[in-house]
């Protein structure tokens, strides 16, 4: 087993318009779980980390129920695509694109995210 190199001072950053917005320490992201972040303009983003260390960020709002809870859903992979299942009514959203996997007509915003 190889351990991912992890330094405590790595930060999770989101791409907003043209700047990188620092959200939190990378260590605060538990593999397989999400956290929510508040953006300066009031939007909410759900951030996730998978077991390989890859980071994802999508809108935190569940477009079906309206509550801002996607960061609290369970994650997984479906045909190679990482997703989160909403904790409300379990619809799944692709973490890379924000596309709802259970309803083609629904897609939420996805953000560029990095550890730096």
């Amino acid at each position: 087993m190889t351990l991912a190199p992890e330094t405590t001072d790595l930060k999770v950053q989101l791409k907003l318009a043209d700047d990188w917005f620092t959200v939190c320490d990378l260590a605060q992201l538990l593999p397989g779980r999400g956290v929510a972040a508040l953006l300066p303009d009031g939007r909410q983003v759900a951030l996730f980390r998978d077991r390989t260390g890859a980071l994802y960020a999508i809108d935190n709002r569940d477009p079906f129920g309206g509550a801002a809870v996607l960061s609290r859903g369970l994650t997984g992979t479906h045909q190679g695509r990482p997703f989160v299942a909403s904790p409300l009514l379990k619809q799944r959203f692709d973490l890379k694109t924000g596309q709802c996997l259970d309803d083609e007509a629904v897609r939420i915003a996805a953000y560029e995210v990095r550890a730096a």
Binding site: V23, C24, A36, A37, L38, Q44, G66, A67, A68
Partner: peptide, 18 residues
Amino acid sequence: LSRFVSFVNAPDTPDPVV
């Protein structure tokens, strides 16, 4: 306990849609 926050970057701010 640090997981029980609405926002990782604003732990004292409650979720405004609640």
